[in-house]
């Protein structure tokens, strides 16, 4: 266990280091001096040193320090990702288990294909359409309007959009992991030696499947972050993901680089946690 965690920590550190390097390269590419290679390298080193001093630079668009902007926009986005993850787990886990273990598997597979084939922005717009025409909710699609008492209704749609995208990823990871353990020889072995099916599933298969889910956390978080970008754009909520899109569009490379680093860091940290949990649940179950 200890060795495993240390190895994962090294991977985490290496990943974060790589992300810092890439962020510095992106920030440097925005400098006017970075037209040629020596200029780029100087700018790159400069940014690295600045990052080392925890100086994240200044947003080229708003003129405020990047750190300040992060503090303003990031919490909202993180909350959106976290709540989306909650929805994804609540919706995706039972769904995935039902599809993976139940006899509905083959019938439901094409349906799942259709749902997962829908790009997030399309499903977001579809949700908005349903909310307006069926539920008569206020939706901030065209202009940021928010009456305080309806604010939760406005917040619900992006969360739902992110959550659905996450749920698709969750059920995929879950089904893959369940398919892996459904062929495990110990199922037959234990059953023949006299254990009940439910007993085998609860004590020996479920931890394995859960470990598979934890090990696939990276994929789920990638889907969530990706969906967050789209959801914030579609529903006009001014968060960090929206800020990223705008920064890139306006060539604010300082901002974009740091945001990219933050998103990569989220993935690495979640991956680390997921791998560790997976190892604790079913050591040696996965490479």
């Amino acid at each position: 266990m200890q060795r495993f965690v240390i190895r994962q920590l090294i991977r985490l550190a290496a990943g974060l280091l790589g992300a810092v390097l890439i962020a510095a390269a992106i920030a440097a590419s925005g400098e006017p001096a970075a037209r040629d290679l020596p200029g780029f390298l100087t700018a790159f080193l400069n940014h690295l040193i600045q990052f080392g001093r925890l100086n994240l630079g200044i947003s080229l668009v708003s003129g405020t320090p990047v750190a300040q902007e992060l503090a303003r926009y990031l919490p909202q986005t993180l909350a959106l990702v976290a709540m989306g993850a909650g929805v994804a787990l609540v919706a995706g886990v039972p769904f995935g288990l039902l599809l993976a273990l139940g006899p509905t598997r083959r019938i439901a597979a094409p349906l799942i294909q259709i749902i997962t084939a829908t790009p997030v922005f399309v499903s977001g717009l579809a949700l908005a359409f349903v909310a307006v025409h069926v539920l008569h909710w206020p939706v901030s699609v065209n202009a940021p309007v928010a009456t305080p008492y309806q604010s939760w209704q406005i917040a619900a749609l992006p969360i739902l959009t992110v959550g659905l995208a996450g749920a698709a990823a969750v059920q995929l990871v879950l089904r893959r992991s369940a398919a892996l353990s459904s062929e495990a020889p110990f199922r037959t072995g234990l059953k023949r030696m006299g254990l009940g099916l439910i007993e085998i599933e609860t004590f020996y298969v479920l931890p394995h499947v859960a470990a598979g889910l934890a090990a696939g956390a990276r994929e789920i978080v990638l889907a969530l972050v990706s969906a967050t970008v789209v959801a914030e754009w579609v529903f006009h909520s001014a968060g960090a993901a929206d800020l990223f899109v705008k920064s890139v569009a306006l060539a604010d490379w300082n901002m974009a680089a740091i945001l990219l680093f933050v998103f990569a860091a989220i993935t690495f940290v979640v991956d680390f946690l997921g791998q560790t949990i997976a190892h604790a649940l079913a050591p040696g179950g996965r490479p």
């Binding site: 495990a184 020889p185 072995g189 234990l190 023949r192 006299g194 007993e199 020996y204 040696g284 179950g285």
Partner: peptide, 25 residues
């Protein structure tokens, strides 16, 4: 009736203690 499998068919779960599984059986 007791069933005696071959150890090479991996009749026990590789993720749990062999002893605990046998005791459970």
């Amino acid at each position: 009736i007791a069933y005696l499998p071959s150890p090479l068919t991996n009749p026990l779960s590789p993720h749990a203690s062999a002893l605990k599984q046998l005791v459970r059986i």
